[in-house]
Write a protein that binds this DNA or RNA. Structure first.
Length: 437
RNA sequence: UCCUCAGUAGCUCAAUUGGCAGAGCAUCCGGCUGUUAACCGGAGGGUUGUUGGUUCGAGUCCAACCUGAGGAGCCA
């Protein structure tokens, strides 16, 4: 090994602090332009990208010719002096004194030109390297961190719920079966909620945050077969408490992203104005009022059903804020929703619809806490009573009013980022026709 | 499961009324000392998703199938 002077390894994101100094940057070649005796190498390192200028005179023939053949996404380490320059994208560049090829890259599949979505998804493991996908993933990270901070600061305890479950949490949706040794079939969870209720009776206020699986053959921009959901559950809580919590959570998440991720929103060319309008209190309408709004807007909608996608979009367009819809018909919601004491055909349920056509981001409500009523519901829904005996136990041993909700992370991220499809809001989307990479 | 649309070079797309299979990017070769998805010149690169049919002649028209996309249904 040759003796080398000590090197300062810098990150591109904080390059401004190194102007006038020689630093080492370790990253990947994003693009290369050449002009005979000068190369312009755009280098990215995960914190940002910068233009590196290499002149033949400064580095000599060998390194200069090596750079001539560097393929896109070659891993390189460069050393050079940092300089502010108005001509450079980003305002700074590095005069390359030395370049080391760390890992070669030839025929990189994603070129600077446009690609189709299917091709990009086939190369998702490489697509993530683009500036746009990095921005989405950073915002996703921020959303998740804001969610955890929100619940942790309010005294909620993170209690993990199982991913392998013995039966449907509800009998309604399709589950992914998994062979469980040679004795049984397990199912991937579609919600941690039933376990959350048990956990809330132990710890008061809890939340779970994990992947959720739905084997529905949905082919829309709002559906994934594997997605992430945060689900809080509170003991001694009523529907109003659930709505207030959901509202506060959405505001906290939006506020955090606006505070910390403006550069990423700019990369995505996301108009921040609709996000800046988000503040409590959100408009609250009952299901009945929502039906009136839909009918007044000319949609043919009959009382009793759940809202379809066009209905959700129309409702969201009626307001310029997230809108809270409560007290859906009991028949349209899950068996564990508590009936409205004043109107038994309505349930103490709530959805939060995001603006701009992003649809339902939160769904939840107050749970049925009466043993006899809940057991009757289990029977009426043809659910195996044995499998729900532990759940019914919660109503036998100190039952209290309680409730909570689930918030789909990908839908929230898609809304914040202004994405056309939730598949970009998760690193490796799982959909009806996609299981790889 | 239903509706609509698409499938041509590694990628993104053209191809007039049915008449020689094309361009840009990427790759390779050459040129250029301030490029901004650099530019200029040259080269290689094709079972037009599959099968069958109509026709002198099919990327183009017809049928079936395959694959995918968008939407509906479904979906706390």
């Amino acid at each position: 090994m040759m003796e080398r002077p000590p090197q300062t390894v810098a990150h591109i994101g904080g390059i401004a602090a190194h102007v006038g100094r020689e630093v080492t940057l370790r990253g990947w070649l994003q693009n290369r332009r050449s002009s005979g005796r000068i190369h312009f190498l755009t280098v990215r390192d995960g914190t940002g990208s910068i233009q590196a200028v290499m002149s033949k005179a400064a580095v000599g023939d060998d390194i200069f010719r090596q750079a001539d053949h560097l393929g896109q996404e070659s891993a390189i380490s460069i050393r050079g002096q940092v300089r502010a320059d108005a001509r450079a994208p980003g305002g700074y560049e590095v005069d390359v004194a030395h370049l080391e090829l760390v890992g070669a890259s030839q025929d990189y599949p994603i070129t600077p030109k446009e690609h189709g979505v299917e091709y990009l998804l086939d190369h998702r493991h490489l697509w993530l390297r683009t500036e746009r996908q990095q921005a989405i993933l950073r915002i996703r990270h921020e959303v998740i961190d804001a969610v955890r901070t929100f619940f942790n600061s309010r005294g909620f305890v993170l209690v993990d719920t199982p991913i392998l479950t013995p039966a449907a949490c509800e009998g309604t949706t399709t589950l992914f079966p998994v062979p469980y040794f040679d004795t049984a079939t397990a199912f991937l969870t579609q919600s941690g909620q039933l376990y959350n209720e048990a956990n809330a009776m132990a710890l008061g206020r809890v939340y779970c945050f994990g992947p959720t699986f739905r084997a529905e053959k949905s082919k829309t921009r709002r559906h994934l077969t594997e997605f992430w959901m945060v689900e809080p559950e509170m003991a001694y809580a009523a529907l109003d408490d659930v709505m207030a919590l959901a509202e506060d959570l959405v505001v906290a998440v939006i506020t955090r992203v606006l505070d910390t991720r403006r550069p990423e929103l700019a990369v995505l060319q996301r108009d921040a104005a609709p996000l800046e309008r988000v503040r409590a209190p959100f408009p609250r309408v009952s299901y009945d009022e929502a039906v009136d709004i839909l009918q007044a807007r000319g949609l043919e909608f009959q009382w009793g059903g759940d809202f379809g996608s066009p209905d959700e979009t129309a409702l969201a367009e009626h307001f310029d804020q997230p809108v809270i819809v409560h007290r859906f018909p009991a028949a349209a919601k899950a068996f564990y929703m508590k009936a409205d004491p004043e109107r038994p055909e309505a349930s103490l349920s709530v959805d939060v619809l995001a603006p701009e056509g992003y649809g339902e981001i939160v769904g939840g409500g107050q749970r049925e806490d009466d043993y006899d009523v809940l057991r009757e519901r289990v029977r009426a829904h043809d659910l195996p009573e044995e499998a729900f005996s532990w759940y019914l136990d919660l109503r036998r041993y100190g039952s209290v009013p309680h409730g909570g909700f689930g918030m789909g992370i990908e839908r929230v991220v898609a809304w914040i980022c202004g994405l056309q499809h939730v598949r970009e809001a998760v690193p490796y989307p799982r959909m009806l026709h996609r299981l790889t990479p």
